[in-house]
Write a protein that binds this DNA or RNA. Structure first.
Lengths: 130, 130
DNA sequence: TAACGCTGTGTAATAATATAACATTTATAA
DNA sequence: TTATAAATGTTATATTATTACACAGCGTTA
């Protein structure tokens, strides 16, 4: 078990906000929203975001510079992430596919590289936008 | 066949530079390097980069905001990219793994999403940095 | 208790990445 | 030739993220 009780005030405020949104949020939109709670500077937001990413509570969507809560309770460390992104409406969903995860986890290149993490982003059009 | 002869002057200058580097380059470091060739503004660089990405000559490493040439002559459109990234020395290699590509290409989620592109980034430590 | 290391805080300034808006030019196609 | 799509050059600005510094809180341990 991870000790999630140890989140600090700022970290909790920001995690709460992200968890309440089903879509990814941008750092500066988070900043705007938490100003009423006394968080005033970008750095305060980025520090909390970095920590939350580190402990696997949220993920960063690299191609969009946004942050989304991890719904998978098992996913305690951000080692392996797969997202589906609609290029029209920007809707993002985290994918948990056992078979795919297996393949990615087991992947070996021919360079002797030691992997500890991966991030996969699928792009396309969702049902609504097709 | 793609008509690669149709690259414009700016596009050629920037593609040349990226191709000569075996490691990914940042937009503003490219800008610095091409100033002597009369390219003066960020937008000129970004326009060329975007075009080159679009036609598959280069790829963007999303987690690093850098651009790397595609060594695979078949890779004419940037639909499917896999990179290995060393978190210590930041060395980046493009991976072409047939089996992996098959799995990714064939991936279907349960949302009825229509994919046209994916990007996968593996992180770890390269031989030198282990 | 005191000294230390570690993590987090608050604040100001600034760096790094990327785009908007506009006028103009060049290339391609009808 | 005209028109139309794509690229250019330029200025300004938006967006994303970090550096630097002073300090507070907490657990360890000497």
């Amino acid at each position: 078990m991870q000790k999630q009780e140890t989140l600090t005030k700022n970290q909790k405020i920001i995690l709460d906000l992200i968890e309440k949104s089903d879509q990814p949020l941008k750092a500066y939109s988070i900043l705007f929203d938490v100003k009423k709670k006394g968080i005033n500077a970008p750095l305060q937001v980025y520090r909390a975001l970095n920590k939350l990413v580190k402990i696997g509570k949220i993920h960063k969507i690299e191609s969009r510079n946004t942050f989304i809560a991890c719904k998978n309770s098992k996913c305690q460390i951000a080692k392996a992430t797969v997202f589906s992104i609609c290029e029209s409406c920007e809707d993002v969903t985290e994918i948990h596919d056992h078979k795919l995860s297996e393949h990615l986890r087991d992947f070996k290149d021919n360079k002797g590289m030691k992997y500890n993490k991966y991030n996969l982003e699928f792009f396309g059009l969702c049902k609504k936008c097709v």
